Simulated scan of single mutants.
Amino acid sequence: MKEVVVLTLLLLILGWALASVWSAYCLYVGIRDLRRGANWWAHLLSFSLFTALAVWLRGLFSMGLNGSEECQFIHRQPYDAAYVDAHTAEYNKWFPLHSKCNASYDMVPAWVNPVVVLALVVSLVSLVGLVWFAVARWPFSRAMNDTSST
């Protein structure tokens, strides 16, 4: 049963990735032609959410399963067990992502957390744009305006 769930999740993420490639193309065409309708905002929302998830997963998987071996053999950094034990609560948080080998080296790339924040801000802006566009183009808004003017 676990295999079916994992396969289903992988297929959903792959489908979302393909849709995000299409969204990136639609965003490019929309910026080039200065056509920004509801679909453009929806594509921006989908693309930015996918970017946030993909970058966050990149940061999550860069932590490795065994911190000491990951630090010593992959990153060629000394592993400070006392430092890691003193800051255990920091590594168990969902955000910001950190996984330090010692006081000066983090296995999570420095660009991961700012890109996640930026992508989530773009998602919020695109959601506001999508809602604004939907309210501004609401079918009943013209009917309400027409009845108030008579």
Rank of each mutant, 00 (worst) to 15 (best):
K2Y: 14
V5W: 08
V5Q: 06
V5D: 03
V6L: 12
L7W: 13
L9K: 11
L12Q: 11
W16R: 06
W22M: 06
S23D: 13
A24C: 13
L27Y: 00
Y28Q: 07
G30M: 11
G30R: 10
L34S: 09
R35W: 02
A38D: 01
A38W: 00
A38R: 14
N39M: 12
W40P: 05
W41Y: 15
W41H: 15
A42T: 02
S46N: 10
S46Q: 12
S46L: 15
F47M: 08
S48F: 10
L49Q: 10
F50C: 07
A52M: 04
A52F: 01
L53P: 00
L53T: 12
W56S: 08
W56K: 12
W56Q: 09
L57H: 05
L57V: 11
L57P: 05
R58D: 03
L60I: 03
F61Y: 14
F61K: 02
F61L: 12
N66M: 12
N66L: 15
S68V: 00
E70R: 15
C71Y: 07
I74L: 10
H75W: 14
H75P: 04
Q77G: 04
P78K: 03
P78D: 04
A81P: 14
Y83L: 08
D85P: 03
D85E: 15
A86R: 15
T88K: 14
Y91Q: 10
K93Y: 01
P96Q: 04
L97C: 05
C101W: 00
A103S: 13
Y105H: 15
A110F: 01
A110V: 04
W111C: 06
W111P: 04
N113C: 05
P114A: 11
V117Y: 07
L118S: 11
A119G: 09
V121W: 04
S123W: 12
L124H: 01
S126T: 12
L127R: 11
G129K: 14
G129F: 07
L130M: 07
L130I: 04
V131Y: 10
W132V: 10
A134M: 13
P139K: 08
P139T: 01
P139L: 02
R142P: 00
A143E: 08
A143C: 02
A143H: 06
M144Y: 06
T147I: 11
S149L: 14
